[in-house]
Amino acid sequence: MAFSDLSHLWHRQTNKKWIYLIMYGRRASQLLRELACSETGQLTTFNSDAFDQVIKECNEHNLQLQSLIRKIEDENLDIQTTRNEDHFGAVIHHLSLIRNKHCLMAYMYNRAETIQSLRWKVGPVLPQEIQEKLNYSEEEYFKNHSAAIESYMSELDLDLTVDMVPPKDPYIRVRVLDDIGEVCLGDHSISLTKHSLHFLRRTDAEPFISQGIMEEFLE
């Protein structure tokens, strides 16, 4: 393919060409800056405007690239050995496209990693305020990924989402933050009304704590 030859040659070019690359890749790098600025484990709203624009940029690069290659071919020059301005123009478009692809993939992939971690931290159902930050594909991804974790756990017959921190005491004192109602724990049922204090087994309390409707009560 012509591309491989192009990118191979790139390494011998001067730094001057990078200026074009930086200009071309700016919007994509903004996506990544957004990731870098947010705290680890936190999601920002999916930036579909910038995302779509970068996709558009990619397709424009491709059009330019194709037309430059066509131009070289029309001039009956050998695409493998020609080193004229059209060749270097094509190299720049090719590399800008790859750079944009990197940024888009890194953006999606890093967000997907955070979304994966939500299954462990928050549970199978995401609260509305997080849900709003995901795009459609990400929502679907979260559901499918949780289902994969769940089927692994059911194959093993072991719940891995409890016991996230090393146990100190098997029982903990907790305060209920929201009306949960009558709940069956072990062999007895217990009424978890708002603001009430209970002494529960840590494993029983953890699911409620991770949902944010109960907290460990520390004097």
Binding site: M1, A2, F3, S4, D5, L6, S7, I55, C58, N59, H61, N62, H94, L97, I98, K101, H102, L104, M105, M108, Y109, A112, N135, S137, E138, E140, Y141, N144, H145, A148
Partner: peptide, 28 residues
Amino acid sequence: IMEKHLEQSVLSRLPYGYQSILKQSISS
């Protein structure tokens, strides 16, 4: 699941030759 996710949100919208999840472009 990951492939499907990246496919539908990024890769399928990129030009031909740049749609691989494993390679930067067809020339890699």
